[in-house]
Simulated assay, not measured.
Amino acid sequence: MSAPGSGSSSSSSSSSVDIVHLVSEMRRAEPLVHCLTNSVVRQITADVLLAAGAAPAMVDHPEEAADFAAVASGVLVNVGNPTAEQVEGMHAAIGSAREHGTPWVLDPVAVGGLTLRTGLATGWLDHVPAAIRANASEIV
């Protein structure tokens, strides 16, 4: 391991450069992120995506979700506090994302503790999310 300031590159500094580059590229692309998320975090999710340079869209109606997932840069599915209509929209968006090669992220809020959410998230694993964003207690 090299001493700080020695001029040698370490894996952590190269990772930092990669992250800076990736964030810059993401901001340049201004991705359209289709968010199907719960009412508790909807505004926070939108604010974070806007701050990161993305364009969030909260489209969860079943009659629009599939169409929107087809044109989005990515889809976020957060299973916290779902209504029956949102679940229907989530199914449609995930199916459309897979069909159109759109990456999608699963956020399994309270999975393992609640039957409906656990069943939804477990079933959606068959649709191969690009990533799972979860707390440690939600992925055990």
Results as ranks from 00 to 15, higher is better:
3 A>G: 05
6 S>P: 09
9 S>P: 07
13 S>Q: 14
15 S>M: 13
16 S>I: 05
19 I>H: 08
24 S>G: 13
26 M>E: 13
27 R>P: 10
27 R>H: 10
27 R>Y: 11
30 E>R: 11
31 P>N: 07
31 P>F: 06
35 C>K: 00
38 N>Q: 12
39 S>L: 03
42 R>Q: 13
45 T>W: 04
47 D>A: 13
48 V>D: 04
49 L>N: 00
49 L>V: 01
55 A>L: 11
57 A>Q: 01
63 E>I: 08
64 E>L: 10
65 A>D: 02
67 D>R: 10
68 F>W: 07
69 A>W: 05
69 A>S: 06
69 A>P: 02
76 L>M: 15
77 V>M: 05
77 V>W: 03
78 N>P: 14
79 V>T: 10
79 V>S: 04
80 G>K: 05
83 T>C: 09
85 E>C: 06
90 M>Q: 10
92 A>T: 12
93 A>G: 14
94 I>C: 08
95 G>D: 15
97 A>F: 09
99 E>Q: 12
101 G>H: 10
101 G>N: 08
107 D>N: 04
109 V>P: 00
109 V>K: 01
110 A>C: 06
112 G>Q: 02
112 G>M: 02
112 G>V: 10
114 L>V: 15
116 L>E: 11
120 L>R: 06
124 W>S: 12
126 D>F: 09
126 D>E: 15
126 D>W: 09
128 V>M: 10
128 V>L: 13
129 P>M: 11
132 I>C: 05
133 R>H: 13
135 N>F: 03
136 A>V: 11
136 A>H: 04
137 S>C: 03
138 E>H: 06
